[in-house]
Amino acid sequence: MKKIITICLLTAGFYACNNGGGTETKTTTATTEPAADTKTTAKTDVTDSPDFVKGLELVNNNDCKTCHKVDEKLIGPAFRDVANKYPNNPSTLDTLAHKIIKGGQGNWGSIPMAAHDKLSVEDATAMAKYVLLLKNN
């Protein structure tokens, strides 16, 4: 008897969670004007960008993740913190690319960033583009 009651309760619970399996018809009405305090901001999905894909591949194939994470400080700053600090423009890309190649110290504390002198300027720029695409809007 306990098994039958348990099965019935579980079945009822699944049914309730599923809201009847979509047998209801919902009607919505569209408004022609957005509310006065509603702002519409469309964020583009940067993960489909060729710059994002190429940069991510380079970051994953080098030692970047030894010291950096996307959203958390590890040894070095989070990539997103770097993106939020700098504007995404050619001058910044050049500066960051050379910083990746030559290494450095002082912009994010006393721990130095190792040099990556075997990277080409093109690859370092692609990595910098990837990082800057992580900017929060």
Rank of each mutant, 00 (worst) to 15 (best):
V53I: 15
D45E: 07
V82G: 06
W108H: 08
T38I: 06
K129S: 04
G109W: 06
M113D: 02
E33V: 05
T38H: 14
K26Q: 11
I5P: 03
G22I: 07
K102P: 06
H98L: 15
V131F: 01
V70S: 10
K2I: 08
K129C: 01
C8E: 09
G109S: 06
V82W: 05
M127E: 09
G76A: 01
S49E: 04
L133S: 12
A114T: 13
S110A: 14
H116A: 08
T44H: 07
P34Y: 14
D81H: 09
T25Y: 09
L58M: 12
G20D: 06
Y15C: 08
T44R: 08
G55P: 05
K73P: 00
L96Y: 05
T28C: 00
G21H: 04
D123W: 07
E57V: 11
I75C: 05
T27Y: 11
L133M: 14
S49A: 09
I111A: 06
T32G: 11
K85G: 01
N107G: 02
K26S: 10
I101L: 04
F79W: 11
L96D: 04
H68F: 04
F79N: 07
M127R: 04
L74V: 00
C8D: 02
Y130R: 03
V70W: 00
K43H: 12
K39E: 14
K85N: 10
F52L: 04
T66V: 13
A42C: 00
T32M: 06
V53K: 15
T31M: 13
M1V: 12
I101A: 03
V121Q: 13
G21V: 03
I101D: 01
N136T: 15
K99W: 14
A78N: 02
L119A: 10
F79L: 14
A35W: 11
S120E: 03
H68Q: 09
P34H: 10
L132T: 06
L9V: 15
G104W: 03
L58I: 14
H98Y: 13
K65H: 01
T66I: 15
I75R: 08
G109A: 08
D48R: 15
G55S: 09
M1Q: 03
T44E: 10
K26D: 07
T66F: 07
K54G: 01
I100L: 09
D123A: 05
G103D: 04
V82P: 08
T6C: 04
A97D: 05
I7G: 12
A128S: 11
N84E: 02
K65S: 13
K2P: 10
I111W: 03
A42K: 09
T125F: 06
